[in-house]
Design a protein around this nucleic acid. Structure first.
Lengths: 157, 157
DNA sequence: ATATTAGTTTGTAATGATTATTATTAATAA
DNA sequence: TTATTAATAATAATCATTACAAACTAATAT
């Protein structure tokens, strides 16, 4: 934990930004809830628990800054809210999402699914790929199970 | 053109919705500007040229309806605006985007890049894939050329 | 120590996209 | 024709996000 904070502090410094108490509090929340795909509002409320004097605009600015420095990914599942994910240490951008269209759950998967696909894009379209966003929409395991359950119920009334 | 409108009309009817004049005008705009990734506002302004009495809320409702019926794809490039693309006839969901981080241009590519990747997701995560969104962020051909141009300028002042 | 400066934060106002509401109109059924 | 329902227009309301002005902080120069 402290180690990662230290690292982020250095990243900020190398761009002549400072790790102010507000920024540190924000980063700590992101670290604690690493897999949660928090919205700015979520982050704000969580930071407020420990640092009640922080302002919403500060949280937005901090998240924007972290996103510019590629410390967090700003992602969008199409529900009108941006979500912010701390990049995992060592992780490249092999970071995809499974969004369930039944229950709305979001699972995160980590796998280099697109290595050769990026090659194809570079070769066939002359587009220099820096990053990608890949989201699958479908039915999660739980909802599949629930659907089968329901069918059984109907069959044996 | 008329053929596709007729088809959409049937799709609406099969869900007991009607192809009202306003809805038809909206669909016509989407057909005319098929590759343009229009925002709701864009669509509204274009529809207004031919049907000045239409309301913005109607356009929103129509686009939402078409999106629910999978006649259009509602997509989001993270710039705070939803964009609406008519699904191409016969096209499956092999429909990806190349977003340039320099000039902001969006190119659309059509290619089944993810056939086997979807298989992997289904097998390894038990997630039943219905659809996906794949966006590449990087430098388009034009901006690459421009960058090289600039370097030449610097080298020979 | 004091003044200066740049960077940061706060609280709030403003903006822009989208959604909800309400009254009206058109289409359909009885 | 009358009653019912669906769809629309105009506008108000909402929600996420950004802009702004004033106050504050920390570092640096005097």
């Amino acid at each position: 934990m402290e180690h990662r904070i230290e690292k982020i502090k250095k990243q900020l410094h190398s761009h002549s930004y400072k790790l102010t108490p507000q920024r540190e509090a924000t980063v700590r929340v992101l670290l604690e809830r690493e897999d949660d795909h928090l919205s700015a509002e979520d982050v704000y409320l969580l930071v407020k628990e420990k640092s009640p004097e922080i302002g919403l605009a500060t949280v937005y600015r901090t998240l924007e800054l972290l996103s510019e420095l590629k410390i967090v990914d700003k992602i969008n599942f199409g529900d009108g809210v941006s979500r912010y994910d701390l990049r995992k240490e060592g992780a490249k951008h092999f970071h995809h999402h499974l969004v369930c269209i039944e229950c709305g759950s979001v699972e995160e998967i980590e796998n280099d699914l697109l290595g050769e696909v990026e090659q194809i894009v570079e070769n066939d379209w002359g587009f220099e790929v820096k990053d990608h966003r890949l989201t699958f929409h479908g039915i999660c395991r739980q909802c599949q199970a629930a659907a089968i359950e329901e069918d059984v119920q109907k069959a044996t009334p």
